[in-house]
Design a protein around this nucleic acid. Structure first.
Lengths: 120, 120
DNA sequence: ATACTATATTCCGTTTAAGGAATATAGTTC
DNA sequence: GAACTATATTCCTTAAACGGAATATAGTAT
């Protein structure tokens, strides 16, 4: 995996937030929408971008597409994801995303495949 | 320092190489030209880019502009520079840059301000 | 002042990315 | 198959970045 390609993926805030919350486990598109409070197109496109570069993988599960970090990421990716977690530890935006993810977890769990689920 | 801004700086190979060799100490533009084998405009522009985002600092010394990493970089920058060093350790391109830097060091030392110097 | 060196900036064409509106696709449910 | 849900893709506009050629600027040396 080319290092520059990784950094290209990291240079957009939405994608950073996506990768950051994904570290806690897989999610579907509609969950990202709620956690990041961003429109469907935006989320979907950024996920496609990340996917085309191998930073995330996905799998269909009924109506849902479940996105996750690759099971065995290459060294450079692992290092950078760890660095990202480290750098965001005290950042309000990223912390708020995690808080929302936690808050929504039960609601997600009721409806959806990934051990998560959409709202109404 | 905004995390995304850092990643924007890191998503170009020339800039990665610049930051990578800078970890070994300050250099002038003409040294980068020789180490990276890249034209003056290219080096100069990328250094300006890095400088405008605070990833490098510079100081004039006679005819030369001496570029260096900031003395006390913010946490996120320090973490990412360390990660970069880690990720490039086995990369031929980056290793070759370091080799060239070492090879040119005496020649640089003869002529220039930063404990380095241009060639002919 | 002139010539010279090192570096920065401007101008140009090309590529890439971003966001949103609208639309298409795939799967589910009845 | 019609209605519905979740997601992807297309089209469009705008903005940013890259590289190189040419030119400008700042400092040095004579």
């Amino acid at each position: 995996m080319k290092l520059v390609k990784i950094y290209e993926c990291l240079c957009d805030e939405t994608r950073l937030r996506v990768l950051h919350v994904l570290a806690q486990g897989p999610l579907c598109v509609c969950h990202f929408q709620q956690i990041l409070r961003a429109p469907q197109v935006k989320i979907s496109k950024h996920l496609a971008y990340l996917r085309s570069r191998g930073l995330v993988v996905c799998e269909r599960s009924g109506n849902w597409m479940v996105y996750a970090l690759p099971a065995k990421p290459p060294r450079e990716l692992r290092a950078n994801l760890a660095c990202l977690q480290d750098c965001t530890r005290e950042n309000p935006v990223f912390r708020r995303d995690l808080a929302r993810r936690r808050k929504f977890a039960p609601k997600f769990a009721r409806t959806s495949p990934c051990g998560c689920a959409p709202a109404a």
